[in-house]
Design a protein around this nucleic acid. Structure first.
Lengths: 376, 376
DNA sequence: GTGAAAGCGCTAACAC
DNA sequence: GTGTTAGCGCTTTCAC
């Protein structure tokens, strides 16, 4: 029903290619014809079909952003930053939410593949090998995960976890718990690795509880386990779980921070609103969104049509991997360890579920840069 | 670089149309050839190009969802519900966030137009006439707004406001304030109209403060104005503003609900987490998301290609307008009016800014149904 | 059951 | 500066 380029051509008495030029290269067309064409287009309500255009040019000027859970307040700052950065470069961002479901994740990549020039995969739950496979279908930038051979933007949660644990050690805590995140989460794995190491080297005992859904409910449901573990301090996979845990503990009559200290991760806006205000590891989410867009668009010349098939195109995009720094924000949910019996460490660190299926190798890659620098 | 249908045809020794059928109408192709084709496709990593397919079929199997502010916790339940409903009908949802910016809103509709089969416009800030114009480019369902001639899903905030005001009147409040929402918001206008009427008919005085950004910061910034207005109760445009206001009042030493009662709108998850827990008008956001998807897909036969141009297609989609019910949830942020001087009503209702540019006419349309029924 | 041919709406050489 | 021509990757009549 909408008017096509042909309708406009007919109405303004020119060839369709002139109409095309009027929109995609106005300077190449006589000012007089241009105004006539524009007038007819306006009249007919004509709009270039971006999908058809993309079929030829190979550029949609859209970016896909796939998110594990749009309801998690961790993501909006990242989304907004990505949108704003994309907008500056004349791109639009389409967001999709997978509900933490790896299958939906894969489907969405396929659904988006040909409607966007690239996809930012944020906190993916699928396997590394699948990610690599999908990256052959559409350019991918991976956020919150390390996949060798692909551009990645990571936040240094390992460093954050170390800072958090050290903070707790400083406060005299010796029996700690870590609430781990979802299975398949690279972040959760990094976190666990680093927290275990930091606790061990500080001579503290650390119990890992999980995996868990990264939600408030997930945290609240762990209150009883935390009590039975007889720990005096807890590091949670994210702020949402930390806040849920505090609620849950409250319901059991356990006070934070007097009885138990709690540290979150992310520094979402909400963490400043709850009582007590949450001590947490701030992750640079906005910077991550911006950086990911930059990395995607960096080498995106988009020349896909025509002669390129013959192979002269330099496909060698430098796959940078960026590690963004985190920092500890101390607020009111942590306090000196109480002086009761709980605080004598017993057994060594307990880690029931090492979740090996999600990373490429131990530790950080040699290629990783530190800081939020990326060529733009 | 990715394999095309032609590559697969060549590899499997059949014509491209056979490959096409293998994917879009498998039953029409000989099982033996089918497996061969499928094998080659797998081998080459072939995936049908959905954009090219859509160019012919007229169906993308995608839905666009345009949201005023993805960081507002009001939206995620709506988004999730829409996604889940879409998924059941084999559709994907692409979300975009406009940052409350009408210009971005329009741009996004254009950007999405040909990549989706329809757009859900949620809480639009643009003008009615522009919405109507855009609806000629792509099928539109409008959420949280009434636009004559277009399918709309609305929440009965007018009723909610009345319930809220009556609740406050019952508690003895006679000097009230309304924190209005953003300019251009249909909801804000409905809210104001209804609140003013309810206050007047209850013999109370109501001061309208605004327009305001619908955020926590927006609410916090109004604390001083609220104090100077010497009111004993406040109805806020949404929960975020209500929570912000409570924070702001707290900073001024004004206690909620002892000194001032506060009512929000939306019943976001957060409203149960703050202290005091928020009294609020619950809006059926998930139902709205589901309903909007249903309405969009209802008549979506998607036949746009080929013969349809000759005009026999019955384009007469019944444009239902659905009004969903709201309800008052009483928690801890409202209490009986304090017995001090403030509570004697003085002047009549004050409404400094009637914001006329956003609605079609006064009151609810005759066509509006009540309840969440919509033919599916 | 499969191939041939036309064409969705548009852009990009290449002539003139 | 404008028209001609050839497709982008795919689906869909229509023959055979």
């Amino acid at each position: 029903m909408p008017a096509t380029i042909r309708d406009v051509a007919r109405a303004s008495g020119v060839h369709i290619s002139t109409v095309s030029r009027t929109f995609s290269a106005p300077h190449l067309v006589n000012p007089e014809t241009r105004v006539r064409v524009l007038a007819c287009a306006e009249e007919l309500g004509y709009r270039p079909n971006r999908a058809a255009r993309a079929l030829i040019t190979g550029r949609t000027h859209n970016i896909g952003l796939i998110i594990a859970d749009i309801a998690n307040p961790f993501f909006p700052p990242l989304i907004k930053a990505a949108e704003s950065q994309a907008r500056h470069r004349d791109y639009h961002v389409f967001v999709a939410d997978t509900n933490e479901d790896p299958v939906a994740e894969e489907e969405l990549v396929h659904a988006m593949a040909k409607q966007v020039d690239g996809v930012l995969l944020c906190s993916p739950r699928m396997s590394n090998s699948l990610i690599e496979q999908l990256s052959r279908e559409v350019p991918l930038v991976v956020i919150n995960r390390q996949v060798t051979g692909l551009p990645c933007v990571m936040m240094d949660v390992a460093q954050g976890a170390r800072l958090a644990i050290e903070h707790l050690l400083d406060l005299g805590h010796r029996k700690l718990a870590l609430l781990s995140g979802p299975r398949g989460s690279w972040t959760s794995r990094e976190l666990r690795r680093s927290a275990v190491a930091a606790a061990r080297s500080g001579g503290a005992e650390l119990t890992v509880l999980g995996p868990n859904p990264p939600t408030e409910t997930g945290g609240a449901g762990l209150a009883d386990q935390v009590r039975r573990a007889e720990v005096t301090a807890v590091l949670a996979y994210n702020d949402l779980m930390a806040i849920g845990l505090i609620e849950g503990l409250d319901a059991l009559g356990i006070r934070v921070p007097q009885d138990v200290s709690v540290v979150g991760i992310d520094d979402i806006a909400l963490s400043r609103l709850t009582r007590p205000k949450l001590t947490t590891v701030a992750t640079p989410t906005a910077a991550a969104g911006r950086t990911a867009v930059d990395m995607l668009l960096q080498h995106d010349t988009g020349v896909r049509a025509r002669g390129v098939r013959n192979g002269t195109s330099d496909d060698r995009r430098t796959t940078a991997q960026v590690m963004l720094q985190t920092e500890l924000v101390i607020r009111d949910s942590t306090a000196p360890a109480p002086l009761d019996g709980r605080n004598r460490p017993g057994a060594a660190c307990t880690d029931p579920d090492p979740d090996p299926h999600c990373t490429a190798g131990p530790g950080h890659p040699a290629t990783a840069t530190t800081g939020d620098v990326v060529a733009s």
